Simulated assay, not measured.
Amino acid sequence: MSTSLRVFDRVLTALVALLILAGAAWVIGYGADVAVARDAAARIDPTSLGRATEWQLWQPALGAGGAVLLVVGAWLILVHLRPRSVRAVSTAHVGAVDLARLADAAAADLGNHPAVSSAKAATRTVSGRPVARITAQFPVTTDLNRIRQLAHRCADDLRRAADTELEFQLLAERTSK
């Protein structure tokens, strides 16, 4: 999930939560005979709410509001359902390459190194670019320069095998073994 989508989700959730909390506080205050809630309820004119449908722009406003809410809802659903993983990428020389298999092979190769406890791969699309992410576990005794060397070697091998421009990420986790 992208950062902007995460922020949008949280802001939208916060706004809906505030509306629900304000409505609940008003209803509870009205039931508890709080003066502010009773005064707010007394200011509501039920006849003016009934006359809203007589307004000449009522139907276009209602339709436009519904269309906007429908588009925003459909956009939210599609953005959340869109797969972020990528299987194949196209290259200039050999056509399509299965990036997931290449990343799995790179993770297996890295996992066979004596300085690595285990490694697993995942592929993603970030800002329209393919990303191969390998999560590897290293013992705490492994030197950081050795981890960097392994990361550069793995990235070079993966880019050469994929024959295309891609992002590479090595997530190094320290283990006590």
Rank of each mutant, 00 (worst) to 15 (best):
S2Q: 11
L5C: 03
R6G: 15
L12E: 10
L12Q: 12
T13G: 14
A14I: 09
L21K: 07
A24W: 13
V27D: 06
I28G: 15
G29Q: 06
Y30P: 06
A35E: 00
A37Y: 07
R38K: 15
D39E: 15
D39F: 09
A42P: 03
A42M: 02
L49F: 12
A52V: 15
A52M: 09
T53I: 13
Q56A: 11
A61I: 13
L62H: 08
L62W: 10
G63P: 08
A64E: 06
A67T: 15
L69C: 12
L69Q: 15
V71L: 05
V72P: 02
G73M: 13
I77T: 12
I77S: 09
L78P: 01
H80T: 08
R84K: 14
V89T: 08
S90D: 15
A92T: 11
L99T: 07
A100Y: 03
A100R: 01
D104C: 01
A105K: 02
A107G: 01
A107N: 03
D109R: 14
L110I: 05
L110H: 04
G111L: 01
P114A: 01
A115D: 04
V116W: 15
S117R: 13
S118A: 14
K120R: 13
A121F: 01
T123L: 01
R124A: 07
R124N: 12
R124C: 08
T125D: 09
S127F: 02
S127D: 13
P130N: 05
T135E: 00
Q137R: 04
F138N: 02
F138W: 00
T142K: 08
R146C: 03
I147K: 07
I147N: 06
L150E: 02
D156C: 04
L158D: 00
A161C: 07
A161H: 03
T164E: 07
E165F: 03
E165A: 05
E165P: 02
E165M: 10
F168Q: 04
L170V: 09
L171S: 06
L171A: 10
S176Y: 08
